[in-house]
Computed example of a mutant assay.
Amino acid sequence: MQRLTFELDRDFVELNQLLKLTGLCDSGGAGKQLVASGAVRVDGVVELRKTCKIHAGQRVTIGGAEIEVLPAR
């Protein structure tokens, strides 16, 4: 499994934007489509809310990739 980390520079990031910012999709719109398809899990649970707020400490998985969201340093 490909493991990625994403360091927040604010309180949260929207799920579709996280997918774009980590390079797992080309745009926020493509991220919304991935979420709507049921392919994205947040902390092990399928997430269908495209703009779900993702906070530090959460893990997002899609296909063979996992994103660990870290607090700002």
Rank of each mutant, 00 (worst) to 15 (best):
E68N: 08
L24C: 12
L4V: 10
L24I: 15
I62V: 15
K20C: 07
I67M: 07
F6T: 13
E7N: 02
L8P: 06
R3M: 12
L24R: 05
K20F: 08
G38R: 05
K53L: 13
C52V: 14
L19F: 06
V35F: 03
L19P: 02
M1P: 05
G57A: 09
L18Y: 01
G38C: 14
R73M: 10
V46K: 10
P71V: 12
Q58H: 05
L18S: 05
M1Y: 01
V42Y: 04
E47M: 13
L70Y: 04
R3N: 09
L19E: 01
I62F: 10
E47I: 13
L8Y: 02
L19S: 07
I62C: 10
L19D: 03
A36Y: 00
I54F: 08
R3A: 15
V46Y: 04
V46F: 07
L4G: 09
L34R: 09
E7L: 07
I62Q: 03
A36C: 07
R10Q: 15
Q17R: 14
V35D: 03
L34S: 10
G63F: 02
E68P: 01
E68G: 11
E66Y: 01
A39C: 10
S27Y: 01
R49L: 14
E14P: 02
V13I: 15
E14N: 06
M1R: 03
V69M: 09
V69P: 03
G57E: 03
R73T: 13
G23V: 13
L18G: 05
L8K: 04
L70H: 14
F12D: 05
Q2M: 13
L8I: 12
D9M: 06
T61C: 11
C52K: 14
D11P: 11
Q58R: 08
L19I: 13
L18P: 03
T61L: 03
T22V: 15
E68I: 13
C25P: 04
L48P: 05
R73A: 14
D26E: 15
G57V: 13
T61P: 00
T22W: 02
R3V: 15
V45E: 09
G23E: 03
E68D: 08
L21Y: 05
G28C: 09
H55L: 15
K53M: 06
R10K: 14
L21R: 07
L21D: 05
K20E: 08
E66N: 04
L18W: 02
S37N: 02
V69Y: 00
L4K: 10
L8C: 09
F12W: 11
R59Y: 01
I67S: 06
V13L: 14
L18N: 03
L18R: 02
I54A: 07
R3P: 00
E14D: 05
L15D: 01
L48K: 12
Q2G: 06
L34W: 06
K50E: 11
V35P: 04
C25A: 13
K50G: 08
A30Q: 15
Q2R: 09
E66G: 10
A72E: 07
G63V: 09
E66P: 00
K53A: 14
Q17C: 07
G28Y: 02
Q33R: 15
F12E: 01
K53R: 14
V60D: 02
G28F: 06
K20W: 06
Q2A: 12
L70A: 08
E47A: 10
L15F: 10
H55G: 11
R73F: 11
D9V: 11
E68Y: 02
Q58G: 08
L18H: 01
A56Y: 06
K50W: 00
A30W: 01
V45G: 02
